[in-house]
Design a binder for these strands. Sequence first.
DNA 1: ACTTGACTTGGATTGAGTCCAACGTAGGAT
DNA 2: ATCCTACGTTGGACTCAATCCAAGTCAAGT
Lengths: 125, 125
Amino acid sequence: MTAQRRVVAEVLDGEHVHLTADEVHARAAAKLPEISRATVYNTLGELVSLGEVLEVATDRRAKRYDPNAHRPHHHLVCAGCGSIRDVHPAGNPLADLPDSERFGFTVSDVEVTYRGLCPNCAAKA
Amino acid sequence: MTAQRRVVAEVLDGEHVHLTADEVHARAAAKLPEISRATVYNTLGELVSLGEVLEVATDRRAKRYDPNAHRPHHHLVCAGCGSIRDVHPAGNPLADLPDSERFGFTVSDVEVTYRGLCPNCAAKA
DNA sequence: ACTTGACTTGGATTGAGTCCAACGTAGGAT
DNA sequence: ATCCTACGTTGGACTCAATCCAAGTCAAGT
Ligand SMILES: [Mn+2]
Ligand SMILES: [Mn+2]
Ligand SMILES: [Zn+2]
Ligand SMILES: [Zn+2]
């Protein structure tokens, strides 16, 4: 556990945010100015493979890192500004996929992404 | 309607494939060797905004272009090799998102991505 | 003190996609 | 028939996120 890893973990701690690697780097650098982008990427990658943080890739923009790995949830994404909210829809989409639609795959996970415009972007449009 | 647009449309015609822009370019260039990547991107972009073709972005790799825009469907993606199958799950995930989970967003679309291993990759693992 | 190994760094590199100025060409105007 | 114009195409430069890598730093163990 180095100082660099600690500040990255601190940045992601607590609130349900969905930060890009650059945003994590900016916030980490506020506490530890000499931290490099490479280290932020390395540390985020480790947290992801430990299952502590989820990667959310909603489009061709930067991936977002989600510390809310404990409770399963899905995402509502604004097509305008890219902002993300956690959502907990009813229903179980895994159960909605019949065997006849699985083609012999071992289906382990399902990801549901709602898209639309946030109030802010809807007002501008 | 130019020769370039026609070959791009032909490449996407018919089968339920999910080709990357580069794959479309390669197949188009087999029929019209001087076609440029820029024109393939331009034409794909036009087909997408006409609603004739869907963009599918399952990860940080290249977007895939899906000519099966007529019947709504979702995707089953192999985590091993990246191959994609069309699936038609039961249920309506849009209806599963209550107003209290919409945060004032104008929700227009939902995308469901099942992940797992195809029979081939499961055998290897 | 010396060695070892793990971690960090900044810069180079990659990959997908976009941008843009120059070019070619088909159709219409004169 | 010639000229003009608008549109489509081209290739290369460029962007942006992410990864790679060789060199540097540091702490622990001997
Ligand atoms: Mn989340
Ligand atoms: Mn499809
Ligand atoms: Zn927005
Ligand atoms: Zn596979």
